[in-house]
Design a protein around this nucleic acid. Structure first.
Lengths: 202, 202
DNA sequence: TAATACTGACTGACCAGTCAGTTATATAGA
DNA sequence: TCTATATAACTGACTGGTCAGTCAGTATTA
């Protein structure tokens, strides 16, 4: 679709040059359309930017919810997390979007605020609930559930940054599989994880 | 100093708007000088940007080296780390610099490459050496030293981003002290940390 | 009175956004 | 099936505003 081609080209250009420095002529050329056509789909450069964000972050929450919310044990949750995370980092444009959004965060505080409240806080509360439930059934033993949730998530942010910022200037890319494997192992120990038996832990 | 005032103003403007969108007139006004004066200290906007980076990242390595390199045990190293990290996040302009550098990373790959090789890799090798030494004397027990070093550092990146991107759009700021306290605790457990006695562990 | 530091109006390049004109597609009638 | 006409999709030269960088002139200090 024309619209998708434009969005893809816009992401590339915004990622490479930033919103202000990206030229609509370049985006149009990259998408294989003329500049005028851009304005048939988006009313302005800013509208294109906002359209890009909507396009990429709409489906994001659902994926995360299903990933974390439905695992039977903390071990399995972390296991599937550390499996899926590297492929998201390597194969989706999430890291590029992160880079672009960080770059424009001060210029568009409403977008950032919206994302924090609608996506990030959502993710944390899912994660916090999962941790709290595991804590309640004696599966893990931690002091500060909220901060622990952030620590579980920190390597995702780290990887997103590394992927979009440092991988492009490195000879070989970071081994995200190894990183998340190590993370899972560290977490399980750090959480004082003890597998629950079949019996109810009451 | 005039030069310092200009650099400070430049950081604020670059942070708020990005390099391309920042106007030299605004930087000059913010620094309390005329636009012409900027050109007495810096030959171009890009030169100002590079000057800013040099100004902030020159002293950085030394601080980190002294922090991690000289602690007698892993526990003490992590302890001092989790003490110093929050104050660096909250009280220095490191998070702002991180945000700016991420935003311009694709536009100035040479700067990013230089930083990775000269600062980040340095930090990691210090950290890796410290972990390896602790491993060798039986203080900790981990599989992957390199990835573990990255996991120790991940919350610093996370905090830097949160500080510069999300704190400005939040009612209350993140509790970085609690975050790093939790991190240290998790790490000590995750590393399988066992304090060494006075005796040699051979 | 010389040298140095600073100023801010000016200019030329650049680019977001426009719109008159062109091309492609759909519909209808012969 | 072929032409005519209407409509929708697209094009790219053009314009007006913006801003990095300049430099002749002014203020300050030695």
């Amino acid at each position: 679709m024309r619209r998708d081609a434009i969005l893809e080209a816009a992401l590339s250009e915004f990622y490479e040059k930033g919103l202000a420095a990206a030229r609509l002529d370049d985006i149009a050329e990259r998408a294989g359309v003329s500049k005028g056509t851009l304005y048939l789909y988006f009313s302005s450069k800013e509208d294109l930017f906002r359209g890009l964000i909507d396009h990429h972050t709409g489906p994001a929450i659902e994926r995360i919810k299903s990933m974390v919310g439905l695992a039977p044990s903390m071990e399995q949750a972390l296991e599937s997390f550390s499996h899926i995370a590297p492929s998201i980092i390597k194969e989706t444009s999430m890291p590029l979007m992160i880079k672009v959004m960080i770059g424009e965060s001060q210029a568009f505080p409403d977008i950032i605020r919206h994302h924090r409240t609608q996506i990030i806080d959502q993710c944390y509360s899912i994660l916090i609930d999962a941790l709290q439930a595991a804590q309640d059934r004696g599966e893990i033993d931690i002091d500060n559930v909220e901060m622990t949730a952030r620590l579980v998530f920190a390597p995702v942010v780290y990887s997103g940054i590394w992927r979009s910022v440092f991988d492009p200037v490195s000879e070989k890319e970071l081994d995200y599989d190894a990183l998340f494997k190590a993370h899972t192992k560290m977490m399980l120990r750090g959480l004082n994880y003890r597998p629950q038996t079949q019996r109810d832990g009451t």
